[in-house]
Nucleic acid binder design. Structure first.
Lengths: 246, 246
DNA sequence: GGAATAGTGTCTATAAGACAGTATGCA
DNA sequence: TGCATACTGTCTTATAGACACTATTCC
């Protein structure tokens, strides 16, 4: 095969038998309304491993990178194949490549994603025909021990989510098209884990220019709240080097 | 060989002949004093390619990932092998994996790094014995056409550097142990590409608690300036999921 | 003494947070 | 009518930026 070098200097040669494999996994966040609590909680889907290593433990959905497939495409594909989910936001998180993270050498390109809480799209499929319950949602704040280094990966994704919600509009990715300011605020509160002043929150988000008021209202409880939608003209967020940045 | 799955669902199988190779490259920034201008300029080292594809073009230093080596270690090793440089700061930038970025399938884990301007460490080595001038420094603002997608990668690294200098202490990585506030300000000005008010800069950086004043002064031009050093107790910056975060 | 750089003081504009107060629907 | 939620107004405090001013050294 043609040797493709990135650097001209002498480098080690990978052999066919002793090769680094590239996997792609995704941490998908969504919000679920907890009847016990007032605020919605962050949840994420995991798949149960049916092979060694870590057979029986829960792991992030993912799969192997195809030879003719970009990393982004592999993330979308493996996500759909293992869970049936199509996220509203998808961004690369980090490449994990410690040598002790798996019995054989695996480099994992990990993505993180957000999912709108539409009933249809949060419906999990289970592609493993004979085993019924191999895909399930978990509370992001209290996960069991996961396979590989996936606990650390989820922690990092959570950190990135909390960080990014402060300076970008990703909260959008967890809401339907139209929403009230209280619903938007609840998204922020769930992610950040603390209450926000409704008055100050309203002012901040209205002055940001990212919201468009509609003339529709959400009724059902006390005074109806105006529904807003996101202003599509404003850049959602930077999600990697391929997006245009100011 | 043992099959290592990340996901339990059916996935494509990599064959021995048709494999994705993992490369590691690094964008290394340093500052060089430009005699024509007042402010130092951002420079980065490139290596000239001696093989196809893109033979003759300049590219980021890097190499193949070894089978028993972490990604971080591979970045340090390939950097040392191709340029002889040991950076003061090293952080993963992004994993690039578009299918058209190289004639054969290559996923590049790209790092970015900072280098202190000590005379010794900015001395480039040239490991390619027969060709004399295969490693050189370039002005980051005016690069020639590079091999692969390396122009875009450098642009992204520059964006990340400019971004990060605003909320972290990475400027430290471009300075010697002791420095004046004017020198620190020049680092910021070079990266951000605009002048900063010396008075406001001083107040900001003094209130941040990251600087320790020494009782030494830099003399040589007009009023001597106090030398400062960084407070090692303060977290330098987040550089990935493996560091401890507040 | 003059020029140049180091360092201080102060004013203003902006934004965040606390919190009182008004508006409007439901029971 | 009372309560819960939506929404508005205002005060305080922290911070960034502009810029005038003082201090110290080199020539």
């Amino acid at each position: 095969m043609t040797r493709t070098t990135i650097a001209p200097a002498e480098t080690a040669e990978n052999t066919a038998d002793d090769v680094t494999r590239v996997a792609v996994s995704t941490v998908i966040f969504s919000l679920r309304h907890d009847p016990d609590r007032d605020a919605p909680t962050l949840v994420l889907p995991l798949v149960r491993r049916t092979r060694d290593p870590y057979e029986g433990l829960w792991a992030l959905p993912g799969g192997w990178l195809d030879i003719a497939e970009s990393l982004d495409a592999a993330a979308s594909r493996t996500l759909a194949e293992t869970t049936g989910l199509a996220p509203s936001y998808l961004e690369q998180l980090y490449a994990f490549g410690a040598t002790d993270r798996s019995p054989t050498r695996v480099v994992s390109i990990v993505y993180w994603a957000l999912l709108r809480p539409d009933a249809a799209s949060t419906q999990l499929i289970d592609r493993t025909k004979d085993a019924p319950e191999n895909v399930a949602w978990f509370d992001a704040a209290s996960l069991p021990r996961l396979a590989f280094d996936h606990n650390e990966i989820v922690d990092y994704a959570l950190w990135r989510l909390r960080n990014k919600v402060g300076y970008s509009r990703i909260a959008h990715g967890l809401l339907a098209d139209e929403f009230t300011l209280a619903e938007l605020r609840e998204v922020y509160e769930s992610i950040l884990g603390r209450r926000l002043d409704p008055a100050n929150f309203r002012r901040q988000v209205e002055n940001s220019g990212t919201l468009l008021p509609t003339d529709r209202f959400r009724t059902g409880s006390h005074r109806p709240a105006r529904l807003y939608r996101y202003n599509q003209d404003v850049e959602l967020t930077d999600r990697g080097p391929l997006e245009i940045r100011h």
